[in-house]
Computed example of a mutant assay.
Amino acid sequence: MATNNSVLFVCLGNICRSPLADGLMIHEVNKRGIAAQFKIDSAGTYAGHAGEKADKRMRKTAANHGVELKSIARQFIVDDFDKFEHIVVMDDSNLNNVLNLTRNDSDRNKVIKLRSFDNQKSGKDVDDPYYGGIAGFDNCYNVVSESIVNFLNKLLEQD
């Protein structure tokens, strides 16, 4: 059964963006002393990286900011709708892939894009840094970090 503070972050391969969001959310709730109130995980819509750690470039970028990424990649499954109250996706492709698996309005209402919580509430995609240089990973970190803080604050306002 999902709790109000159960969050699943979803990207394509679950090795860059969603592990970063997962790690940053864990970092934030630990920093605030409220980790016990949360269930946090990440998954990918593609299973090709299942069982792998986050991309080493993403882990290094996060570590440079004092954030450890411990997640192991797995594929998003329909049962995740029963386990998580919030399904937070990184881009429109992830959004469509997850929405295609919904069974009802309750499932659909759980799905939202992470950048709906950036400072501009832009709803834009979190760009996938996988095929780019280190600047893409730094940009990804900044975008995801800003959005995670705002998302967490929104969840705490609702409690």
Rank of each mutant, 00 (worst) to 15 (best):
M1N: 11
M1S: 12
A2S: 11
A2T: 10
A2P: 15
N4A: 09
N5Y: 15
N5I: 02
S6F: 11
V7H: 00
F9R: 06
G13L: 00
R17G: 05
R17N: 06
A21M: 12
D22L: 02
D22A: 03
G23C: 08
L24N: 07
L24H: 11
I26Y: 10
E28Y: 15
E28N: 14
V29E: 07
N30L: 01
N30V: 02
R32H: 13
R32F: 04
G33W: 11
G33T: 11
I34N: 09
I34H: 05
I34C: 10
A36G: 13
A36P: 09
K39F: 10
I40S: 04
D41H: 14
D41A: 11
S42I: 02
A43F: 02
A47G: 13
H49S: 06
A54Q: 09
D55Y: 03
R57H: 11
M58Y: 06
A63C: 08
A63E: 14
N64K: 15
N64S: 15
H65T: 12
G66Q: 13
S71A: 10
S71V: 00
Q75L: 00
F76R: 09
F76P: 10
I77L: 09
D79F: 08
D80H: 13
D82M: 02
K83M: 08
F84Q: 03
E85L: 01
V88A: 05
V88T: 04
V89I: 01
V89T: 06
V89L: 03
D91Y: 06
D91S: 08
D91V: 05
S93A: 05
N94W: 03
N94R: 10
L95V: 11
L95I: 05
V98D: 01
L101A: 09
D105F: 02
D107A: 06
R108P: 07
N109M: 14
K110H: 08
V111S: 07
V111W: 13
V111G: 08
V111R: 07
L114C: 00
L114H: 04
D118Q: 13
D118M: 09
S122W: 12
S122V: 04
G123E: 10
G123M: 04
V126K: 02
D127W: 12
Y131V: 00
G133I: 00
I134C: 00
I134E: 00
G136A: 08
F137A: 01
C140S: 13
N142E: 14
V144C: 01
V144E: 01
V144Y: 02
V144L: 00
E146D: 15
E146Y: 07
E146K: 10
S147D: 11
F151P: 06
F151V: 02
L156M: 15
L156Q: 14
E157K: 15
Q158F: 03
D159F: 09
D159G: 12
D159Q: 15
